[in-house]
Amino acid sequence: MGKLFAVIVFVIALLSAIPIITHSWFGSGISFALPEDISTHGHAIDDQLSDTMVEAGLSFLAAQFVLAFFVWKFSNRQANAEIKTFPGGAKGLVIAALVLVGTEMLALGILGQKAWAAVYFTPAKPDAIQVQAQAGQFAFYFRYPGADGKFGALHPDKIDEGNSNFFGLDPANDVDSRDDIVTGELAIPINREVHLMMHAKDVGHSFYVRELRIQQDFVPGLDLSVHFTATKVGKYEIVCTQLCGLGHYNMKAYLNVLSQEDFDAWMKQKASEQ
């Protein structure tokens, strides 16, 4: 029985590692690889992730193999078999854990700090494109300031989805809001920093774009922001990752990364539609 346990643990550990190493589901073509990174900060996160994967993976395999080996070797021994003590005893193991895991964790912690800092500790550049994002049940809306570069004020009491006034603007009295562009997709130019100012209309939501390596909650009552630079033209999915109600699974929008010319054209077209 002990030997069976050892074999099963060994096999499970190996099989568990295969999809991680090959990034696929046992040759079926289903990919577990991280999607291609399209942001300027994402490589730091990816590097950190693969460093951690190596350390965690080795710890995982080592611990499972040692467990399997010891159970194989020491299970169901004869009743008079001699009981031996692990060389070095508890002291050795404690020191080993402190030194090995301690340095490992310290290293991960300090290295990981850099990747975090790249996202959160640097303010957005002043020339970054300002976009406002609003999350509500169960859609994202985005607002560009328009030609005047100013966002109109928000009036939650004026929100009227029937008349497409998703943000609660008041163009009748508020000059700034008249040229604001409101869309359901987030179009941005390539290689320009985007400063996304986020607020929630009703309950908590989250802004998650896998390829951008960005995830940030919308918290009602709080004005949060993230900034990022996309480096690859394409259409990517923005999904909600914070449970927000029955339509949560279906709450999504598209991130449309365009070349500068395409973006300008897109802007012009949207401005004329307003």
Binding site: F70, A97, M105
Partner: peptide, 23 residues
């Protein structure tokens, strides 16, 4: 927290060494 958790795991594994494990 990893450190105490690792210590415990190592103590379990180290104690298995040379034992008379009954399954």
């Amino acid at each position: 927290i990893t450190i105490p958790a690792t210590i415990m795991t190592l103590i379990w594994l180290g104690s298995l060494y040379g034992s008379r494990l009954r399954i």
